[in-house]
Simulated scan of single mutants.
Amino acid sequence: MRLRVGRPPHLEERDAVGDPRAHRRARGPTRRQVFGAYVALTKPRIIELLLVTTVPAMLLAERGIPSPWLVLTTLVGGTMAAGSANALNCVVDADIDAVMKRTKSRPLAQHTVPTRNALVFGLVLGVLSFAWLWATTNLLAAAMAVGAILFYVLVYTMILKRRTAQNIVWGGAAGCMPVVIGWAAVTGDVGWPALVMFGVIFFWTPPHFWALAMKFRDDYAKAGVPMLPVVATPVQVAKQIVVYSWVMVAWTLLLLPATGWVYLAFAVLAGAWFLVYAHRLHTAVKRDEPANPMKLFHLSNSYLTLVFLALAVDSAIGLPVLGWPF
């Protein structure tokens, strides 16, 4: 007769009914985990980059330092608007996110947040952003925030993203709106420098996202998203990145009539830095050599931050504007 070797009965009973870890698993996610899932819906890293451009736009509009309260309220409203757009984007793209390795950990792909809850969360954030910006800034800034949400969700996510390789070119316009909203919050209108800043981000978006899409080409292809690297050759994509990079750097110089020497120096040096990397990527791809598009992707974040930081410093210290005619 063989003896059964096991754990003492009292320990087995504890495992069944008394283990705190078992109870936690049975109860589901903790409040902290649920909170983290809802925060993840808003895509905080994307929001950070958007806010980096908002403050310099406000400083340039003031040509100095605007009211700290106005800056704070604009950032809060902008955060809610961007969070709304991103959460609604997650709802529409849940099927895509579940397929792609890069996005399969998102809350709706992991079913950590019910789709209905995510939809309500996104809509409530959008309504709050409008009400908040209208109450603390002005109606123009609030209306443009709502316009950006609608454009990002309805035009980019629901129409362009799955239908055309130019999706990120035109859809990226929504990500350009924070600078215009920041300008409007200070001045109550939309001046030409706001439109130039809009253009800088507009032309920055394709090189930024196409570099990322080159890395995750197979992911996008598997999900059925016709990003340019999916439908074009690497050489064609790299060439387009170079073209948009040159236009972007040239466009930054259109701000010179409203800025000073600090901005000029950084716009030129950072632009040259970006162009070198864009051309290196194109050369490597053309020669069929190993290429790392993620270097350009990460550089693009640093580039945009540096250019707008220089714009902020230039505006805050109040140096005389260059006022160069074009």
Score class of each variant (00 low, 15 high):
residue 51 L to Q: 10
residue 243 V to W: 13
residue 297 F to I: 00
residue 267 A to V: 03
residue 113 V to K: 02
residue 180 V to G: 02
residue 56 P to C: 12
residue 129 S to N: 12
residue 111 H to V: 07
residue 202 F to L: 11
residue 104 K to W: 07
residue 237 V to N: 10
residue 326 F to G: 04
residue 40 A to Y: 10
residue 302 S to W: 14
residue 205 T to A: 13
residue 83 G to A: 07
residue 228 L to R: 07
residue 169 V to L: 14
residue 123 L to F: 02
residue 168 I to P: 01
residue 145 A to Q: 08
residue 74 T to E: 01
residue 255 L to W: 11
residue 196 V to E: 08
residue 83 G to D: 10
residue 228 L to Q: 05
residue 158 M to T: 12
residue 227 M to F: 15
residue 292 N to I: 00
residue 311 L to D: 00
residue 52 V to T: 15
residue 74 T to P: 00
residue 21 R to Y: 07
residue 236 Q to R: 14
residue 276 V to H: 12
residue 97 D to G: 04
residue 150 L to G: 03
residue 293 P to C: 02
residue 108 L to Q: 10
residue 165 A to L: 02
residue 80 M to Q: 00
residue 321 V to N: 10
residue 131 A to V: 15
residue 200 V to S: 09
residue 103 T to C: 02
residue 251 W to V: 03
residue 218 D to H: 14
residue 140 L to Y: 08
residue 277 Y to L: 08
residue 283 T to N: 08
residue 87 A to W: 09
residue 316 A to M: 09
residue 116 R to F: 15
residue 141 A to W: 08
residue 29 P to N: 11
residue 261 W to C: 04
residue 271 G to E: 10
residue 167 N to E: 03
residue 226 P to I: 11
residue 168 I to C: 06
residue 174 A to N: 05
residue 12 E to N: 07
residue 67 S to A: 04
residue 101 K to M: 06
residue 72 L to C: 06
residue 7 R to V: 15
residue 84 S to E: 02
residue 326 F to P: 00
residue 172 G to F: 13
